[in-house]
Write a protein that binds this DNA or RNA. Structure first.
Lengths: 194, 194
DNA sequence: ATTATAAAACTAATGATGTTAGTTTTTGTT
DNA sequence: AACAAAAACTAACATCATTAGTTTTATAAT
């Protein structure tokens, strides 16, 4: 059932990740990837459905990596502590893998079922954390959307040099997360979340 | 001083915006733009420094448009009201100009002085709003970074189909902004912001 | 061991794109 | 009417994604 074993998909994605992280996601082309793997560009079509297929697989790969790192930090924690750690790790991932992180949001069709599924694992993790605040169902979803917006927005702006002023970014992030947590608290007490 | 008047830069950017908003920023190529303007691709080099130059100018153009819309809404308002309206308008802009909004964060070099300057007008506007909360200097900057993260993150995720679950997005946004406002309030009273 | 097979990698070719160089056209100014 | 400068052009090239068809090669079956 396997008359010839050539390149492994994992190796391809690792090579693509390396290019993305060092030269930016735009530098990930079939040509550059083939060169790095020492094969000819058309050969990549045996493993990946063109550039679009590569982007999609890279997006899923990135989401899985991100999920793994988040889970590592989340286990054994709950409440404020868990949210703080999750937030820091999310941003840390984007910092350590700038290109791969970009790729997670650059899939040709973000609504693709496989991409959605990879993303939903992260969402589910966040939902469980929110449950610790007594947020259930719709309230939990709104809260998770908020947290994701915060973390993605921060990571994305930081990556794109959006924060021009030289003021400690880690402080900004910590304050932002704490502000969010405080806000959730207030909103709950005011009955705006339940 | 002007032996021949050809295309106007404004017209070029408007055409590019149209392509970006209808077909996505990736569809904005010198070829497609030239076709829309009924000229040959090399002619664009008389107005724009290649594809990179176009992207940069489009980014600045988008930031200016965004700023104009935000100012319109911010005038005559302050405090919670101003922040809520600003947030809604920010997201509304991204929705009405998905491609142009993308372009604002896709400049070849985000640290380019001209791009930074266009962005800093928006930041300054937000800083002034934050001053109404009694947040000055560093505290104001942290708060603005937070608000930008929230709004960009939300707009970006929404655009990329990141919110898969069918639950009213406007509600999520309103709750998020209110959560942020509440959080700022609590943090101030706890002395973590000053 | 030999052979068949299926996957992987290849060569060759095509179309689209960005870009440069050099030429022609156009139009406001002198 | 002549000039000059900007705009638009043609021609050409390099790079890239992609398709079609061929060759190689390692495994599986004989």
């Amino acid at each position: 059932m396997s008359p010839r074993i050539g390149l492994d998909l994992q190796i391809i994605l690792q090579a693509a990740t390396q290019i993305a992280d060092t030269e930016g996601i735009e530098a990930v082309t079939l040509a550059s990837l083939a060169k790095k793997l020492k094969i000819r560009p058309p050969s990549l079509y045996n493993h990946v459905d063109g550039l679009h297929g590569l982007r999609k697989k890279l997006a899923i790969y990135g989401l899985e990596q991100l999920y793994n790192r988040l889970v590592q930090e989340a286990i054994g924690r709950s409440g404020d502590d868990a949210v703080r750690v999750l937030g820091k790790e999310y941003v840390a991932f984007a910092r350590s893998h700038p290109g791969l992180y970009e790729a997670t949001l650059l899939a040709p069709d973000p609504r693709d079922p496989e991409v959605q599924q990879a993303g939903s694992k992260i969402v589910d993790l966040a939902v469980r954390l929110m449950n610790a605040y007594g947020l259930e169902d719709e309230a939990a979803i709104h809260a998770v959307r908020g947290l994701r917006s915060i973390l993605h927005g921060f990571a994305s702006l930081e990556q794109r040099g959006g924060f021009g002023i030289p003021l400690d970014l880690d402080v900004s992030l910590s304050l932002l997360i704490d502000t969010f947590i405080s806000g959730i608290d207030s909103m709950k007490q005011n009955g705006k979340l339940h």
